[in-house]
Amino acid sequence: MPSLKELRGRITSVKSTRKITSAMKMVAASKLKRAQARAEAARPYAEAMQRMLAALARNVTAQDGSAREGLPVLLAGTGRDQVHLLVAITSDRGLAGGFNANIARATRLLAGRLRGQGKTVKLLTVGRKGGDSLNRDYADALIDRLAGSGGRDVAFSQAGDLADRIAAMAQAGEFDVCTLVYNRFNNVMSQTPTELQLVPLSLPSNDNERGDPSGAAYEFEPDEETILARLLPRNLAIQIYRAMLESAAGEQGARMTAMDSATRNAGKAIDRLTLNYNRTRQANITRELIEIISGADAV
């Protein structure tokens, strides 16, 4: 049975841990509101851009007889499906429950499935935790490990730099398909690992769909090819930026939930240790009284 000194030390240690987890919960809660607002504000613009480019791409491919030759590589790809670039977005910090582990697991499953089909897989990670996790199993496929936002607000320039790098790799023919893996923010309790194909541009399965779901038609000025050349790199940066914002909001939500659970568990542990401390203290007092009474009777 632990001594009173050991129990006091454990209680003090757990109380210190509870203070830390409670403070981290409050910090995550304060950051969550802003991160959630930015993620939700980015969705309509990114989705509208995707719909407009889909309509534009259908017009161009229809005019060209669906031929890939002459089309931008960000739209049509290389025409092959052999080399896949997977871009995994995680956080730089831990203590966020299964937030980073879920992305690492989803990326491993996707990479394993592609390798099982005989494909070549390349990995590019954003965020220290994703790089550390995937480096253990896919060190041969990991081409680079980029830093995340470090807990600060996500800057569009960061997404733009990553988009420029992916576009340059696509132009150089270093991959055929690029897929983004990130956590989509649903609410504080739920983040969904999501796969988004960036290159070639993913089009809706319904070839007869024009414009957006409301039935609106688009008229383009200047010609479609010129607009595509300008907007495709911009759309790539916007989709990456949106994913980073979703991931940032999901990180704060997951951390707040994890720290809330840790704080409550610490409270339960303190209650158990306090009960054991009181029982041990009472047992020691009872034993000492028995020893005194026994000594007095002996005299």
Rank of each mutant, 00 (worst) to 15 (best):
M244Q: 14
R43Y: 07
L110E: 13
E195G: 05
A258N: 06
G173W: 01
Q171D: 13
R108H: 06
V181S: 00
D144K: 11
A55D: 15
L109M: 13
V177M: 00
V199A: 03
I227D: 03
V60G: 02
L4N: 00
A141E: 15
Q36V: 15
V177C: 00
Q63S: 10
A172L: 06
R51M: 11
R43P: 02
A168Q: 04
P204S: 05
P44Y: 13
N284S: 14
E221P: 00
A62R: 11
Y138R: 05
I89W: 09
M49S: 12
F185E: 09
Q117T: 04
S261N: 12
H84F: 13
L114D: 08
S149Q: 11
P213I: 08
V87L: 13
A37L: 12
G65A: 01
A37I: 05
M256P: 02
L231A: 10
R51G: 05
T78D: 06
T125M: 02
R279M: 13
G211R: 07
D207N: 06
G116R: 09
Q197K: 09
G77F: 03
G98K: 14
T274M: 10
A23C: 01
G112F: 03
G160F: 01
E224T: 11
A48N: 12
M26I: 05
A76I: 06
R38L: 15
L232S: 02
R264F: 11
P233M: 03
Y138M: 13
G94L: 06
T280G: 07
L180H: 01
T286F: 12
L32F: 15
V299L: 15
N265Q: 15
N187Q: 02
A216R: 09
A54S: 15
T263C: 04
G97E: 05
T286P: 09
E195W: 01
K19N: 07
L71V: 14
I143M: 14
D144P: 04
E47S: 12
A35I: 08
L53Y: 03
Y182W: 04
T78C: 06
M24R: 10
A139K: 14
N183P: 00
K268V: 09
T194I: 04
L231C: 08
R108K: 14
G173F: 02
R105C: 08
R152H: 12
A28N: 09
R264N: 11
D164F: 00
A39C: 11
A23W: 06
A88S: 14
G215P: 09
N265P: 01
Q171F: 04
A283P: 09
S157I: 06
D297G: 14
A101Q: 15
L273H: 10
S133D: 14
A37N: 10
E6R: 09
E225Q: 13
N208G: 06
V177S: 02
A96W: 03
A216K: 09
L74Q: 05
T90Y: 07
I11Q: 02
L203H: 03
R184K: 11
N206A: 10
N265V: 05
G127Y: 07
L110C: 07
H84P: 00
E47C: 02
L53D: 01
T179E: 10
E40L: 15
T78K: 02
F156Y: 11
K31A: 04
R242W: 05
R128P: 00
V73A: 05
F185Y: 13
D207A: 12
V121C: 07
L142T: 15
A28D: 12
R38E: 14
M1T: 10
R145F: 05
L71Y: 04
L236W: 04
L75T: 07
A258D: 04
V177D: 01
L134I: 06
